[in-house]
Design a protein around this nucleic acid. Sequence first.
DNA 1: ATCAAAGTTGTGAGCGCTAACAATTGCATC
DNA 2: GATGCAATTGTTAGCGCTCACAACTTTGAT
Lengths: 327, 327
Amino acid sequence: MEDVARVAGVSHQTVSRVLNNHPNVSSTTRERVEQAITELGYRRNTAARSLVTRRSQTIGVLGSEMAQYGPSRTLLGVQQAARDSGYFVSIASLREVTPASIKDAIAHFMDQGVDGIVVIVPHPGTFEVLQDVTAHVPLVAVGSAGDERLSGAMVNQRQGARLAVEHLVELGHTRIGHLSGPADWIDAAARIDGWRDAVTEAGLEPGAMIEGDWSAECGYRAGLSIAQERTVTALFVANDQMALGVLRAFHESGVQVPSDISVVGFDDQPESAYFIPPLTTVAQDFEELGRRSIDLLVERLEGGDPRPAVTVEPYLVVRSTTATFSN
Amino acid sequence: MEDVARVAGVSHQTVSRVLNNHPNVSSTTRERVEQAITELGYRRNTAARSLVTRRSQTIGVLGSEMAQYGPSRTLLGVQQAARDSGYFVSIASLREVTPASIKDAIAHFMDQGVDGIVVIVPHPGTFEVLQDVTAHVPLVAVGSAGDERLSGAMVNQRQGARLAVEHLVELGHTRIGHLSGPADWIDAAARIDGWRDAVTEAGLEPGAMIEGDWSAECGYRAGLSIAQERTVTALFVANDQMALGVLRAFHESGVQVPSDISVVGFDDQPESAYFIPPLTTVAQDFEELGRRSIDLLVERLEGGDPRPAVTVEPYLVVRSTTATFSN
DNA sequence: ATCAAAGTTGTGAGCGCTAACAATTGCATC
DNA sequence: GATGCAATTGTTAGCGCTCACAACTTTGAT
């Protein structure tokens, strides 16, 4: 910086002012300094800057299940938005989600001196742990509806489930089952509620519900038992991976989709359009979710008042696993 | 730090020595200092430390296609290994891979003052761009076989393709086609070579090859045309997503898998076991790939000599899309 | 011409840490 | 008991930057 100052014929402080866009710098000096900067290829030292400003321009992203479609996609949005807002993004992904591993990761971020933290951990216990932690920096949890202080953007899961059910009701189905995610997951619970509400509102009895674990394997097993019992004519599955397993189980069991049983998934992964048959599913914009969460966090970092959580709306994508029921 | 020193009754420098595991500190003082540290909940300031040591303990990870299975999985390994080695991980994922966006991301990392960079960008042009950049820090490119100076760990793609072909040959197939990835991608090219070599070595003529783009959609289209022409009895597909599309195309065209045509994929995504029918595929350990690459980088960061690239071996997972050919 | 107010630039200190060196201590040797 | 050496501890400076404040320059009104 001293070098730049010398070349531009000003003091180091003036260079600093140019760099920080201070108002009271004459345009001629500013130009001279900027020229010196490009001439010398000068880049300001982040460590020194952080030392005095006590801000690192870094956002920590705490994630789990990062190999899955939803979270990895959300991370993409988070990362892009953060970089666009001039922040560096540091990540820590949890191999296993335990209070200890969460605290460990938060400590890691505190050591690093991050300015804020985004949590992309869809597990239920997470938020209680986070409340204890009090990281001394703003913290936003993607998809959490729990605590006002730490809730980021979230997808209206309930509405997504409603969309799926209403579609099935319109097709004339009266016995609509649900293969859910683990009931203690926030998202899974919301989808269960949405399913039950929408079915009830349509004047129907909720069909059988099976609690799954999000995996294709468990979808397969659930599918086999549903195929055997045949108590429902339509099945709302809480994610596309389980739906894949269900489709295979039905295929093996001789259950025709959609003529015997209709199936609706959730997530709209890119592959879902190529399932056999192509999957009708509820799409959610994960990247947007990430982006919005960062916007919220950045606003808070730059001194804005905590705003209410924002909601991203899902939408239905109709493909070939749903058809009118006519028995 | 001054506070800790006061509590422990020593100078700040001694505290620093304890923190950095310097040898010449008596065990009694060390203990006293450590106790003071936990008592005060002291954490050393990274920015100040970086300022004087000129190292940030941060590794930058440059990625693209992060929503895909392979890259996101690799990132997981990279991230874990880096954290285990005491480094922070900063990420920048490219929305589109262009020389400009790559240079931009590298500049971002240089601004941040990362100690080293890992590149997880499977696009071919990347490496030429990286050679220009000369980031002034060690740089490792995952999966690159090109330049000695920047090659990290890589999967033996050629061997993977060979495994797939040999399996098909053993089953009695003589007309083995290939649905490849974009031919200018490093991985795709290696798989093409491996396929051609293995087929030739078995004393056969290579069957038809179609160049795809990794997507399920393109697999679907390729599958339709292959089903129509029926010039091969076995198809080696360069990734599982395209294989999914192929399976659907065959299903729609009335081609039975595996009795009419056998199919082998590549990657072994978790879903592949639930395709209809379950996919025989070549598995590769992406996390290991990431871990090894970081090990290489860290070694270089800590002053080790540049070592030759390490190789991760893939293996075949036989499921239900392959069967003996007997016509 | 004189002064106040605003605009512009420079000076000095210090953020929290580590590296180099200086000072002190303990201990074996002569 | 004096001497030398190693082990341990303390002192000082400075990494590159921003902040608070001081100093200077311009402008326009009196």
